[in-house]
Amino acid sequence: MKIVVTAQGAEMESPVDPRFGRAKYFVLVDTDTGQHQAHDNAQNLNAAQGAGIQAAQTVAQLGAETVLTGHVGPKAFATLTAANIAIHTGAGGTVKEAIEQFQAGRLEPAAKADVQGHW
């Protein structure tokens, strides 16, 4: 299963970035192979608006089925949902720990956006 974790760095040990659209990195983790690769989100970090939409498209292009992050805004939620990507909010610790939290069933799937845009 391919999972994207929003992160402040490019490694499995990097802290989770609680923001989705303006996360510093998207770390794509393949739980079947244990491989990971980081995608730099710098371009979106400074976007005036629409960061969540762009980020969701990036995540879809990376082929992820699930996103683990801290919070998700309304436009990002709508875009990820349209791309059939599951969103789990409330992730914390490192990327590795977020994956473990998810696999242990401790991250609830988000049924709607939990923050306003530009929070």
Partner: peptide
């Protein structure tokens, strides 16, 4: 960023 293109 007003248009989002997704796989489906």
């Amino acid at each position: 960023g007003a248009v989002a293109s997704l796989p489906n």
